[in-house]
Computed example of a mutant assay.
Amino acid sequence: EILSFKPRRAGFAATGSPTNINVGRTMRNSHGRRIALRRPKQEELDAVAEQLAILEAEPQSAAPARQRIAALREELERLERRRKRIAYVDPVDIRFNRFDAQPVPNANAVMFCLMDVSGSMGEREKDLAKRFFVLLHLFLKRRYDRTEIVFIRHTHEAQEVDEETFFYNTQSGGTVVSTALEEMHRIIAQRYPSNEWNIYAAQASDGDNFVTDSERCIGLMDGQIMRLCQYFAYVEIIDERESHIFGSTDNGTSLWRAYSVVNQRWPNFQMSRIANAADIYPVFRQLFARQPVLQKSA
């Protein structure tokens, strides 16, 4: 998980960039310092200068008048010297806005877990699929703090469920895989806009599906899902007796053939097969190995 940092106001500092000067706090310090040091105000200088001008305009015959003029001149000079010594704004007055770097998630992430629980998925197939998702769930929870997980189960219809229902409740029915993709797209549109979230998905199925619906899956993946996803992984559960036949070939179920088309078009799509429990971890590592940075398609 990559973190970025944004500046957050954290009080004031005596040093900093000129662009971060806090004028209000600086002038407040300046005013307090001038009061404490009794810096002469401009009004005081103007009053002395006014008195001096009046006396100088009068006839200077009397000695007391000349002494008063001399005293006023001396006072005016003293006030001016004091004003120069006590600056209006001194470097000690200046305060800068202080900013601390606050870590924030560079992007939010959500993982969609799609599992086939139809009648064609026997207990062995469901157990392998659940084992795969348990491993994925543990990986996400331990690796990432801020990743949300959405669980979707489907037969001939799909629904979002909680973690308990996803892993432990039993369900059966016909198979329409496209319903899971439609439900995922609906949830993305409602809660996870692609411009704010990094979207990932993992799907597990035995591959059993109507040919017409598999073609619909291609349309949904090409037209909607893969344009929104950063990464999509598909795991197909196959019979152990067929692993030597289908383990290294593109032949297989209608859903596998459909997703093979998607795999050729989208670099952020990966697919693999699982025949027994020993295959789960190697396949998991293969699917979720570090990937090059991929840009979402427009």
Rank of each mutant, 00 (worst) to 15 (best):
L3I: 09
L3S: 06
S4C: 10
S4G: 12
I21S: 08
N22F: 04
R28I: 02
H31C: 08
L37G: 08
P40D: 12
A47Q: 14
E50N: 09
A63I: 13
A65R: 15
R66T: 07
Q67W: 05
A70K: 15
A71K: 14
L72W: 03
E74T: 10
E77R: 11
R78L: 13
R78D: 10
R82F: 01
V89A: 03
D90V: 05
P91D: 02
F96L: 08
F99R: 10
D100P: 00
V104E: 08
N106P: 00
M111T: 06
C113L: 11
D116V: 00
D116P: 07
V117Y: 00
S120W: 01
G122S: 10
E125H: 09
L128G: 04
K141H: 09
R142G: 05
R143H: 03
Y144T: 02
I149T: 15
H156T: 06
H156E: 12
E157D: 11
E157F: 07
V161Y: 10
T165K: 15
G174L: 07
T179C: 07
R186V: 04
Q190V: 06
Y192K: 08
P193Q: 07
P193S: 02
S194C: 11
A202C: 15
D206H: 00
F210P: 07
V211Q: 15
T212F: 14
I218P: 13
I225R: 04
I225N: 09
M226G: 02
R227Y: 05
Y231H: 14
A233N: 07
I237R: 04
I245T: 12
F246I: 11
F246H: 14
S248E: 08
T253N: 08
L255E: 04
W266H: 15
F269E: 15
S272T: 10
I274P: 00
A278Y: 03
D279N: 09
Y281E: 15
R285H: 09
A289T: 02
A289C: 11
P292F: 11
S297T: 11
